[in-house]
């Protein structure tokens, strides 16, 4: 695997190479080289099986990270090609011409993260949600809890107590309080 990665590195500059297991490597490739590299891997290095395409939201870095996980059925190992794209204007070259299955992933990613893959078939069709008017729901800044609170109404028959706070109020209410407790009391 190592020598193969070195070879690949000389062809397409790899970053963040991590040998996660003997049979699994992750590496980041520049956006403009990615589809090229993936095509090369598929056609010349026997990484013919697309296991998964995925996306991770690194909101703090302002990036989406796409993952193309490829499997080599002959050598039985995997390479995960990571591509960072801008989070503000998320767009990636479509790979639907490489595998018949990839347009579904791209359609899902469009819905779940708002990433655009120009030319990908049925990209804008609903995948799992219908009539969604919030921000794409897999983004880190979509708060499921807040959404649930405002969309559904709690029955209002539940209330919990924090043991430490409860004990303070019961057992030593006049004890001088810390800054945090003062805040909680308000």
């Amino acid at each position: 695997m190592k020598s193969f990665i070195e070879k690949l590195n000389s062809k397409y500059v790899l970053q963040e190479v991590v040998y996660q297991r003997d049979d699994l490597v992750f590496a980041a490739i520049k956006k403009e080289n990615a589809i090229d590299a993936i095509t090369y891997l598929r056609d010349y290095e026997d990484f013919t099986h697309l296991v998964l395409m995925s996306c991770v939201d690194w909101i703090e870095d302002g990036k989406y990270q796409l993952l193309y996980l490829l499997h080599n059925p002959i050598l039985k190992n995997d390479i995960g090609i990571k591509v960072y794209i801008d989070r503000e204007n998320p767009e990636m070259v479509s790979a639907h011409h490489l595998w018949k299955s990839i347009w579904t992933y791209q359609r899902e990613m469009h819905e779940a993260f708002g990433i655009v893959f120009p030319g990908s078939p049925r990209l804008k069709e609903n995948f799992v949600v219908e009539g969604w008017d919030e921000i794409p729901f897999m983004r880190r800044d979509f708060d499921t809890h807040e959404y649930a609170e405002k969309t559904y109404f709690p029955r209002g028959n539940r209330k919990s107590n924090d043991p430490a706070e409860y004990m303070r109020k019961k057992l030593y209410p006049s004890q001088p309080v810390t800054a945090k407790q003062r805040k909680d009391d308000k």
């Binding site: 107590n161 430490a164 057992l171």
Partner: peptide, 29 residues
């Protein structure tokens, strides 16, 4: 309240119970 902390469904609340007193080592909840 450790049971409350681990419940991934927020199914648990800690509530005062009649006849259980708040004392050292027991929140009474």
């Amino acid at each position: 309240g450790t049971c409350e902390a681990i419940c991934e469904n927020q199914a648990i609340d800690l509530i005062p119970v009649d006849g259980v007193e708040t004392k050292d080592g027991d929140s009474g909840l």
